[in-house]
Each structure stands twice: as structure tokens, then as C-alpha cells.
Design a protein around this nucleic acid. Structure first.
Length: 555
RNA sequence: GCGAGCGUAGUGUAGUGGUUAUCACCGGGCGUUGCCAACGCCUGAACCCGGGUUCGAGUCCCGGCGCUCGCACCA
């Protein structure tokens, strides 16, 4: 076992014992890929969510929404998840090793990932590749393994648990567009659960079947480059790994200018992401951004940068910042026939001369009956120079003759002041559990105290699950009453979580508080009973100061 | 899903067929102690689940569940 593995095990043991992160349904033997946030972890998670929300809402043109996790089949069919969000697996008949069919066929097709199941099956049979583990050539039929959790809605309609929160924001586009008075750019954020029925969840909190995600969908006009202020990062050098794996160390503004980052808004959100992660305690030296290679991109993305954080499991993708283009809104438009567009006014109105034909409904209607609609479409496509009577061919091959009394000349001037277009979307998507894991990993500090191992979580104040621990030096002589009174006062303060601990020696209580990352401990001692002063102990350096208990900074 | 290893109190562990399952930390109570895991006494807590072999199973066998690693996938 390596040194890091041993540290990881000690950390996980501590997290279980202190009620931060525990295996879910442990009582029943546990359930793979599912975790509980315990009495301390629950608060930690909600704090992190709140800091995340505040961070993005501060942009000023972003709103928070909340959509269902249960999602109708059609929505995820339109978004491409039903078709794309699956792996096609095949099993070796000799060694039982399961492989992805598209991976096996990589050398035989430019993009096997894009093939439909039947095409993939026939290509597999044609090529019959070697098994990577036993070199035989004996493959089972391909099985589609969809990564979404199926469910039934009501009596019989099919649905899924959402694999991402994003679709709810796309389907809410009309309400968002109205809310923002039909002016781009704007965004919507959502924090909530997502579900992926992973074949094999691994690495603790890193790959889960139910997980917390936080996503921003930022809608922009692709024709109007946005002005983004990169000045706050001007002196920061970012670690940027491009699609070929080459590391570039430069400022964000430079990277955008050199088009290493292809879109300024993506670059801007990378900066905002950096601020968020470092703000909650991620070690900036163990943070980098990596661009997806073309073949690595999700089915909806046209450019994507991941924020990767280094921790006990190596470099892990914790945030994906994707340029989704108009993919999603267009897909939902096509599926529903509804308009999911924004209006762009021209700087100068366009004058369009229309000179052509249309049908005279009163005459052509009775004459062509069911075909009248088709006749109209065809006639309206004619140049003004066409002469009637004219023979036209309908879609089923029949030929009808259009007489001059069936048609009318159309001549008008139309002024177009703008046009409708499908907005593009830039999406920063955060894996909250992965981030939380790395926050803990980076905050976990092992030292020694009097020869004994000593552990603490140096969590940022903004996410610490417990703000203050109130400790009576002894539970007697009035110290316990005074401490309880103070504890009650703290708890009544909105946003403050206080922990009362009167059990064990004072040193032991400090140690326990340090393990759950309480930034300050307030100790009520004999002098407190005399003059209502208390000592405040700082977690990170152990320093203590005495102060009147009525003047505590957070009250 | 397949292969390999593993599964004993809250945590970390000892126990390789023999009856009251080890040790430490831990949790609780009382006492003591004037502030960094102190001490004393008392006390709490476990063999993952189910089948099998055996006179007897924590220990051996089979199946399930879970954990770790590899293949694979991803926020």
C-alpha cells in the first residue's frame, strides 16, 4: 500500500466516524455508488451549494430555477440522450471480457462511436477483431447499455431520471426569455440530483449513480461577441492543457487572444470557475484546465474545457465548461415544433421586394380540393415571369394544370426589422460531489501533537458545516448553563450553526472540533461566570483570545 | 458485466476448525482536573447476508451484497 493510499484510508475512516460522508444504506449491506452526507456532511454540502449559487447569481443576469428529476422519454430522446448516452458492449466468448464494440473497431472506421447499433453489429462481424485480453475472435451480439435510469411515469408512459439538470433549463427557455424581457445574454442555474446508472461505480465519491450537480446554461447571441472583463485574472497564470495534451501556461486573456480557448465566454467562465474553486479551498497549484480532444467531446458539445483537480485519485474532472452551440434548443424545436428562438433587430431594416404569385383561394380551393395546399406552395415558389396555364407536378407524381383564374399576382414591399435565431449556449457544469471530495482532500491535514497523530479539516469559513463550537470547561459551577445559553443564542442567529460539546476533556473536544473543521471554539470557563467573558480559539493556529461573550463577532 | 484481492464494535485491528472473539483508540455515566486527544472507576459496541461441509464455522466450500484494483465510462 502506498503512502497516499494509507492517507486516503485514514481520511475515509475519519469521514465515516465524524458523520461527514458514509456509505448509504449501510444497514442493509450498502449500495454501490450511493453515499450519505451525514449529520456534518449534510450541512457541508448545502453550504457548498449555496456558495455556488451566490457565485453565479452575482453575475446579475442569471436566475435560479428548479426542474424535476423525473423526465419524460420524449425530452431525452430529443436531446439525444436515449440514442447517444449508451455504450454498445460485446462479450468475448473465450475469456468473458466485456469490451465496447466501438473501441474494438477504432482502426476500421473513422468514427465508430457515431454508428447505429445495427451498423456497429455488422462491422463487428465483418472485421471480427482480436480480443484485447485473450486474442481470440469470438464476440457475442452487441448489447446497448444505456446509462440512464429508466422509470415509469403514471400507468404506462416511459421516462428516465435525468442524467443532467441542463435539459430542464432548455425546456424552460420560453419562460426564461420572457423573464429577461427578451434580451440576451442571460443564464439559468440549477443545483440538484442527476442520475447515471454506471456500469461500475468506483473510486468512492468520484463516480456515483446518484450525484449532485450544479449547472449554468448561459444563452448568447452567436453573432454578437460579448465583452468580458479578464482584468481580475491578468496576473494569474493558468495551467491549460490543449486537445493534444500540450501544457500552456499563460493568462486567460492571452489564451483567448491566441484562440487556444476558442470562445471568450468559455474563457470568462473558466476564470469564474477558478475563482469559485479556489474560494472554497481548492489548492490552485493542483488545479488545471484541459481541453477535450475532438473525439472526446460529448454529443452536444463543440468545444469543452474541463477543470481538473488533483487529489487522492489523481487528476479528476470536476467541472466541464462546454460550448453547446445551438444543439439543444434546436433539438427541442425539431421535436416539438415550438419556437425556441430569440429576436435580433437589424441595425438597418431590410427592404425585401416580393414579386410573384399566390393562389386565388376562392377559385383554386374548390378546383384542387385536397391538393390546394400543395398547389399554393408550388405556385408561390414561381418567378414572376411564369405564364399560366401551367402544368405542375405534385409530390405523388400527378400532374395538374393551373389556370390563370386560379392564381393572383403578388407584388409588395416588406420591411424586415430583424430576425429570429436559435441562441447558443455556454454551459459550466459542476460535479458537486467530486468538488466536495477534493475540498475535503485538500483541507485534510495530518500533523503530530505531542507525538500523537493529529488530524484536521482546514475548511474555508464559507463552507464549514459548523461555525462555532461552544465548550464549557466543566459542566458545573454555572459554566454549563452559561454555555448552553450562548449556544442557544448562536443557534437562533440565522445562518449560524453552533455545536455544544460538554463531553470529555477540553483538549479532546478541541481535537474533535478540528476534525470536522470548526473554525472557532468558544470556551466558557470560571472567569466567564464572573464577568461574561469567554475565550475564542482559532482552529488553524490554536491561538486564544478573551472577549466579552456579548461581543462575539458572528452574533 | 468479467477477472484478482478483501469484508470482525463508531474507527483501526488480532484471531487458519474447538465453545466467554483480542487489543487500542472511540462513545456514554460518575469522579477528578483551571484550556489542547490527561487520569481513575463503571459502562456501551462487531464476526456483511444466506446456504452448505462438520460433533463444532469468524476461520473451509457455494451464492448474494459491499469495498479496492484492472478493462470501460463519466460531472
Amino acid at each position: 500500500m502506498s503512502k497516499d493510499d494509507a492517507r486516503l484510508e485514514r481520511l475515509q475512516g475519519m469521514l465515516r466516524q465524524r458523520g461527514i460522508i458514509l456509505p448509504a444504506f449501510d444497514l442493509y449491506g450498502g449500495a454501490k455508488g450511493l453515499y450519505d452526507f451525514g449529520p456534518v456532511g449534510g450541512r457541508l454540502r448545502s453550504r457548498l451549494n449555496q456558495v455556488w449559487l451566490d457565485h453565479w447569481l452575482s453575475l446579475g443576469n442569471v436566475v435560479e430555477i428548479s426542474c424535476p428529476t423525473v423526465t419524460p422519454y420524449e425530452v431525452l430522446e430529443a436531446s439525444g440522450h436515449v440514442g447517444e448516452f449508451s455504450d454498445f458492449m460485446t462479450v468475448c466468448g473465450q475469456c468473458d471480457e466485456a469490451s465496447r464494440a466501438d473501441t474494438l473497431l477504432e482502426g476500421y472506421h473513422p468514427n465508430p462511436d457515431a454508428l447505429a447499433k445495427a451498423e456497429l453489429q455488422s462491422l463487428l462481424e465483418e472485421v471480427n477483431p482480436e480480443c484485447p485480453s485473450c486474442s481470440s475472435r469470438d464476440w457475442s451480439e452487441i448489447i446497448a447499455q444505456n446509462l440512464m435510469f429508466s422509470t415509469t411515469i403514471g400507468q404506462g408512459s416511459e421516462g428516465f431520471m435525468r442524467p443532467e439538470t441542463a435539459q430542464g433549463m432548455f425546456t424552460s427557455f420560453p419562460a426564461l426569455y420572457r423573464h429577461f424581457r427578451e434580451r440576451l445574454p442571460f443564464g439559468a442555474v440549477q443545483v440538484g440530483k442527476g442520475y447515471r446508472n454506471e456500469i461500475s461505480p468506483r473510486q468512492g465519491m468520484i463516480r456515483l449513480r446518484e450525484f449532485n450537480m450544479a449547472e449554468l446554461e448561459y444563452f448568447i447571441d452567436p453573432n454578437e461577441p460579448l465583452e468580458h472583463d479578464f482584468s481580475s485574472w491578468s496576473s494569474k497564470i493558468f495551467n491549460l492543457v490543449d486537445g493534444e495534451g500540450t501544457l500552456h501556461s499563460m493568462s486567460l486573456a492571452q489564451a483567448v487572444e491566441k484562440e487556444l480557448i476558442r470562445h471568450a465566454t468559455v474563457g470568462y467562465f473558466m476564470g469564474k470557475t477558478y475563482d469559485f474553486l479556489v474560494g472554497i479551498g481548492i489548492d490552485s497549484s493542483r488545479l488545471r484546465f484541459r481541453q477535450h480532444a475532438a473525439d472526446e467531446m460529448a454529443h452536444y458539445a463543440s468545444d469543452c474545457w474541463d477543470a481538473e483537480i488533483e487529489g487522492s485519485y489523481g487528476w479528476i474532472e470536476c467541472v466541464g465548461i462546454a460550448h453547446r452551440g445551438c444543439y439543444d434548443l434546436e433539438a427541442h424545436e425539431k421535436a416539438t415544433g415550438k419556437t425556441l428562438r430569440a429576436r435580433r433587430e437589424f441595425s438597418e431594416p431590410k427592404i425585401v421586394e416580393i414579386d410573384g404569385w399566390t393562389i386565388d383561394g376562392g377559385v383554386a380551393g374548390p378546383a384542387f380540393r385536397a391538393d390546394a395546399g400543395q398547389v399554393k406552395t408550388i405556385v408561390e415558389s414561381f418567378e414572376s415571369s411564369v405564364e399560366f396555364p401551367a402544368d405542375i407536378t405534385l409530390s405523388d407524381g400527378r400532374v395538374v394544370t393551373v389556370q390563370s383564374e386560379h392564381v393572383k399576382r403578388v407584388q409588395k414591399t416588406v420591411k424586415e426589422t430583424g430576425e429570429w435565431f436559435i441562441p447558443h449556449v455556454v454551459e459550466p457544469a459542476f460535479g458537486i460531489d467530486r468538488i466536495l471530495w477534493h475540498v475535503i482532500d485538500h483541507a485534510f491535514e495530518e500533523t503530530e501533537k505531542a507525538g500523537e497523530p493529529y488530524r484536521m479539516l482546514k475548511l474555508a469559513d464559507s463552507i464549514a458545516p459548523i461555525d462555532v463550537a461552544i465548550l464549557p470547561l466543566f459542566e458545573k459551577d454555572g459554566m454549563d448553563e452559561l454555555a448552553l445559553e450562548l449556544h442557544q443564542r448562536c443557534c437562533q442567529k440565522a445562518g449560524i450553526v453552533s455545536l455544544y460539546d460538554g463531553s470529555g476533556s477540553i483538549g479532546k473536544r478541541y481535537a474533535r472540533a478540528d476534525e470536522v473543521g470548526v473554525p472557532i471554539c468558544v470556551t466558557v470557563d470560571h472567569q466567564s461566570v464572573e464577568d461574561r467573558t469567554v475565550t475564542i480559539r482559532n482552529r488553524d493556529d490554536g491561538s486564544q483570545t478573551r472577549i466579552s461573550m456579548d461581543e462575539l463577532p458572528f452574533l
